[in-house]
Each structure stands twice: as structure tokens, then as C-alpha cells.
Design a protein around this nucleic acid. Structure first.
Lengths: 188, 188
DNA sequence: CCCACTAACGCAAATTATTTGCAATAGCAA
DNA sequence: TTGCTATTGCAAATAATTTGCGTTAGTGGG
């Protein structure tokens, strides 16, 4: 009888984690130098102190590796600031979010994540966004404000802006953002 | 006085166009076979009857070539059907549009276009969409209906659905589409 | 604590993809 | 036509990717 419990699953132990960290870090360092020509798997392996075959076996392609790194970089580094009202919080947050993802490296990160067939990474982007939005919503509710659902905020604020950013490289100005936010608040 | 007219620009003439058509066709044929492993530049060149270096020089990378082919495939092949009212036309059109881009090859096409830093191709996607939407709008106006702006339709109908499709692989059901359309019509 | 097991890695050879120099072809304008 | 050069084919040189094999190092069981 086959003892399935003995199956020795994946191995998140020390060395694997170390290799991953070194490789990710090497990618960031080479990206920081700006020369996209040198962003190759052999170059990354060299800087990370591993052999190229290690990267090929763990990540498969450069695109997948870059996707993983991009998702890490897209993780918000701080909670949305508090400006005293839901409207002000939301406008301030979406402005800084758009500023981040509309920069050249920011746009590239979004596109890099979308480029690869790895649903996990793509979902993570929305998860991060929704977490930030929920933080703003909960703060507003604590103040006694009534706020639209998180999904509504994605549909009517984030989605239109990201859609135009991705497909038209179109940057929203302040009135455009306020229009979207106010439309959301008026009949959310 | 510099005579700029003498500058010998690019050359859209017979042979170039022929090579491009042959290469694009070769990509489609190999894609149709489903084996993504064989979708390489040497394989494409072989089937198209050109040398690999020709593809490398004209397209640079496989991703760019695939992006060009994907945009061609995303071109609508027919005008939106007429169901007698703006609401019905819009629902029917967005349903078939989502059905197309949510299929495995459809999703891959969208992602392939977004993956490459070629604004022209990304804009083309929105241009196609806007053309279809405008056709529906003009037909409705000819009937005497008042219709929302094309931009509003992108913001409140297309963008939310495509956003969730790209980031969450989320397929809308019929009520979800009707809700978006009706919200658009009520206060567009 | 020690041992067996095997996932993950390093190394190097083999394969495959990409780049590049040079010659030939063919679109375009005068 | 004729000259000009963008574009291609060909082949050699370079670089990237795959693969087989031996070794290292987590992990679980005794």
C-alpha cells in the first residue's frame, strides 16, 4: 500500500529562499542600471552567484522571473494616509497610485505581470489594491461615513484609469480623477 | 535649403509586404497547432520561407512579432448587430466581445499586446473597440435615442470588465453586464 | 542525534537561438 | 533606364538554453 503521507513536498528551507532572494536582488540591481540589454539570465545568474541552469529550472523563462520581481515591487510600502474624509483619502491614494504605476518603471511592472501566464501574480496586483481601498473604507466607516463597496471602487475608479493607462498611455489630470470619485460617491 | 523630399523613407513595396504576410501567416499556422514550444523564430522563419535574420532585423524579438499578429487578430470582423435599441445592441456587442477576449487565445492576444513596449499596438485595441461602440451609438442616434459618450462607455462598461478579466481572469455573467449597462444608461 | 531520502544546485557538454559581416536583390525616385 | 539604398539571404561567430550527472543540503523518520 502506498503511503502518501510520506510524500516529500516542496522545500522552502533556507537555501532555496536564499537563492531566490539573491536572484531577485540581482534583477533589481541590473534593472537599476537601466540597460535593458544586460538583463539576461546569464547576467542575473552571474551577479546572484548562481549558475544559469538554476534559474532556468526554477523560473523557466526571463519573463516569469521578471513577473515575480515586478509583483514584489508593486506591493504597497505604506498604508494610505489619513486626510480626514473618505473623499480626500480616496483622491490622495488614487493620485499616488497612478503616479506610481504610470512612471516608466511602474508601467513596465504592470505590463510585465500581465505578460506572463501566471494568474497568481496578476491576482496579487488586485489584492494589493483592494487591501489599500479597504483600509480607506474602514477608516471612513469608523468616522461614521457611508462608503461604496470595494468592488464599486475598482469598477468605477481604478479600472477606468488603469485601462486607459495600459492601452492609451493616458495620464489622468486632477479634474478627471475628481469627476470619477464624485460620480462614485453620488450614486455608488 | 534642405530638400527633405529626397529622403528615401521606408519601403512598403511588394517584397516587404510579402515577407510580412508570409511571416504573420506562419505564426498563425504554428499557433493553430497549439504547441507553444515550437513557436520560435527559427521555426517561423522556416515555415515562412525566409531566413531567421530577416525576422530578427525587422521585428527584433518574438514578443514584438506576436504582438503585431495579435493586434491583427483582434480587429473586429463585422459591425455590431442591430437589435432595435441601444441597450440591446450594447449588451449583445459587449457579450460577444467578452466572449472573444476571454477565450484562451483571446486572453493571450490581449496580454501579448500589452506585454510589448509598442504603444501603437496597444492604442489600436482601444481604437477598434471605440469604432464598434461608435457604430452602435450612431445607429441609436439615428433612431432618435440619446446615448452616452463613447468615453463613458469605455470607462463604465469596457474598462471594468477588461480589468477584471486581465487581473482576475474573472468572467462576467449576464446580470453583471446588465447592471453595468443600466447604471451607464441611468446616469450616463 | 543520526540516517535515509530526494529536492535543489553546480558544472560542463550538447543543442539551439541570436547577432553580425558581406554580398546580392529589388523597391523607389530622378 | 539608372543610381541609390532598404531589405534580404547566407554563413560564421557569439550567446543563450537545455540536459545529463555528480554533489550538496533540507526534511522526516527512527
Amino acid at each position: 500500500m502506498e503511503n502518501k503521507k510520506s510524500r516529500p513536498g516542496p522545500r522552502p528551507g533556507g537555501r532555496s529562499a536564499l537563492v531566490q532572494a539573491a536572484v531577485h536582488q540581482a534583477v533589481r540591481e541590473i534593472q537599476a542600471q537601466g540597460d535593458a540589454q544586460q538583463l539576461t539570465i546569464p547576467a542575473i545568474a552571474g551577479r546572484a552567484g548562481v549558475t544559469p541552469s538554476t534559474i532556468y529550472r526554477r523560473w523557466g523563462t526571463l519573463a516569469e522571473l521578471l513577473s515575480d520581481v515586478a509583483v514584489e515591487n508593486l506591493r504597497p510600502d505604506r498604508a494610505p494616509e489619513d486626510y480626514g474624509s473618505f473623499r480626500a483619502d480616496l483622491i490622495a491614494w488614487i493620485e499616488q497610485y497612478i503616479e506610481e504605476v504610470s512612471s516608466v518603471p511602474g508601467r513596465n511592472m504592470l505590463r510585465t505581470v500581465l505578460a506572463v501566464d501566471k494568474p497568481q501574480n496578476r491576482v496579487q496586483c488586485t489584492t494589493y489594491t483592494l487591501e489599500q481601498v479597504d483600509a480607506i473604507r474602514q477608516r471612513a466607516q469608523a468616522r461614521g461615513e457611508t462608503v461604496p463597496a470595494g468592488d464599486a471602487i475598482l469598477d468605477r475608479l481604478v479600472a477606468p484609469l488603469v485601462y486607459r493607462l495600459l492601452f492609451a498611455s493616458e495620464l489622468p489630470d486632477r479634474p478627471r480623477i475628481e469627476t470619477l470619485v464624485d460620480a462614485l460617491l453620488d450614486n455608488g
